[in-house]
Design a binder for these strands. Structure first.
Lengths: 351, 351
DNA sequence: CTGAAAGCGCTTACAG
DNA sequence: CTGAAAGCGCTTACAG
């Protein structure tokens, strides 16, 4: 392979001069710089990443710890991953993708061996076993997902509580008084998926504040269970006029379920989802939704991570906890509940 | 950070002895080996990956070039990626994920800087601009996807021609005489998505051989265009009794389309798809299908790549071109065409 | 069975 | 403005 020594020889300068000419870290005469650049081009020189990492203690690589857990909606994960990878590249970083089931173990391996300059953890649980490892690591970390303890890391997530309140408020404003919330499978909650219960609890509280009835249930993650459970819920609460769907698989299954029950949206049922706009477009989910903005969250996490890598040794910047405001995408799937629609009155309970 | 020098000092041996004790590349007395291992544990030593890479010219990292192109079905890509990442890890390799739009440029950067020991390219086009770069690189490469020129690389793909024939044969055997094939959007074909036309051309030939009428059309990749185009096709060919769906978005949209047209599967329409089993499960696509086996293909590519990395300098192993046989997953979405069903006769044309 | 030394390809103080 | 040298943390011939 062609090394900086070859470049130096071809340009008739020392290796250090060649290095400085390329990095620009000290003044170099125009003539020498041009000779070096010419040699680089002629020889097709690219610095060896491993050697550079060894010399500078910087790998220019970010570790991305994805977690694909049972009962969760895998396709959503891809969008976070792309946000991280693309943002990293724009900032000069490559992305090491770690998908091992044992995330804590993988994290220790990656950080101990100094393969990366920083880490992004996706799908962070309330008590995430990866966090103690991350805190003990010499590299900084940024999370997508809000854990119980945010110390020592930068945290980014959707404001799921605000999302839950916004969904409830929206239907309340339209006059709905009995609604249903379909969350992720209970397994996800038991495993510590705090985002699920943050939305759920906030929605329940808000409904109570408004004097609404909110039936909060856990959905399923796969067909045919998803469809069955949707039907069961609709059977159980025939008086409900609104549906909040914090569950991608349920959102995808819902159009057919409602259709087979002869229910039209929004005439017979108002629906609000919570998923990414990209997902809505691919499957044309016809429901207004809170955009989960995976791409944006991934990018935010990387940007902060890179900032922290740069300023790591310097003054202790305070850690960031940023919950982004839910963005409501209107797809006209909500309306006043039946009966009220025609009268234009938003006052009574459902008749 | 703790280095092998620290370990050596703690164990009272030289650095080379410590290194050999850990690698096992030469005989070490039991006593010394134990002292070294004890020092490693006590100090929490992990070799520095960059230093090791520099010394051995092995990074133990595989580069994964994903390509998310417009008009293609992004969620499918994730499954290939996971297959590669998981298989790599099992073989001792980490995965560098490259998602840059300019794949050829990214590939050159990664290979020139020696960040990886080998490359896996996903979504390979007929004339893929990344291939010349890959062939010129010092690292070996494995492809998922069959290009026009396979020289210098190991290639893995589904046997899309056999898949096309199998789909046609299946419906022919049941007595269908007029069927429709919905492929990916035309854009995908124009861009060189050879897998699309391999299935398509093979299906057309096979239909002709059987004396069947096959209407081959290009579908769409997003709603609402997908649904519209499905309806338009069904309007155009009212005599068709079978549907071959080589298009994930169309497969996801089809149940509702057929339902709204009052068509039951397989009573009124036989359907065969081509998508991964995982995808079928998440959305419970109710159609028999050819499994595109993304996980398996990703794993095969990595396994061969690692084999080639190991034997690279040795005798020239011939390059592999492996098209895996299509696997038919029966979900009971096919039957004899209407009318024949009752008679049990598979002889006539549709009446 | 073990050690001292060279070398992988860079970067960056240290000198001039 | 430029060069010779040290050093990053490993591995692996070369000696003994």
């Amino acid at each position: 392979m062609v090394t900086i020594g070859d470049v130096a020889r071809a340009a008739g300068v020392s290796r250090s001069t060649a290095s400085y000419a390329l990095s620009g870290r000290r003044a170099i005469s125009l003539e020498v710089r041009q000779r070096v650049q010419e040699a680089v081009r002629a020889l097709g020189y690219t610095p060896n990443a491993g050697a550079r990492a060894l010399a500078t203690s910087q790998t220019m690589v970010i570790g991305l710890l994805a977690q694909l857990l049972e009962g969760e909606f895998a396709p959503a994960m891809l969008q976070y991953m792309l946000g991280v990878s693309d943002a990293g590249r724009e900032l000069g970083y490559d992305t090491l993708l770690i998908t091992e089931a044992d995330g804590a173990h993988a994290l220790r391996r990656i950080t101990d061996s100094r393969m990366v300059d920083g880490l992004v953890l996706l799908n962070v649980a309330h008590q995430d076993v990866r966090l103690p490892v991350l805190r003990a690591a010499p590299q900084p970390g940024a999370l997508v997902g809000l854990p119980g303890d945010c110390s020592g890391v930068d945290v980014f997530d959707l404001d799921f509580e605000e999302a839950g309140r916004a969904m409830v408020d929206h239907l309340h404003r339209l006059g709905h008084r009995e609604i249903i919330l379909i969350s992720q499978p209970e397994l996800v909650v038991q495993r510590g998926g705090a985002w699920v219960w943050r939305l759920r609890n906030a929605a329940l509280e808000q409904a109570q504040r408004h004097g609404m009835v909110l039936h909060a249930v856990f959905g399923e993650s796969r067909q045919p269970a998803v469809g069955r459970s949707l039907n069961a819920v609709l059977d159980t609460y025939p008086g409900a006029t609104g549906l909040l769907i914090d569950n991608e698989a349920a959102a995808a299954a819902l159009p057919m379920v409602l259709h087979l029950r002869g229910l039209q949206v929004p005439r017979d049922m108002s629906v609000i989802g919570r998923y990414s706009d990209e997902f809505a477009q691919i499957f044309s989910l016809p429901y207004s939704s809170i955009d989960s903005a995976p791409d944006r969250l991934g990018r935010l996490a990387v940007r902060q991570l890179v900032r922290r890598i740069a300023t790591e040794s310097e003054s202790e910047e305070p850690y960031v906890l940023r919950l982004i405001a839910p963005d409501f995408v209107d797809r006209e799937s909500t309306a006043p509940p039946r009966g009220q629609h025609r009268s234009g009155q938003y006052t009574g309970r459902h008749e």
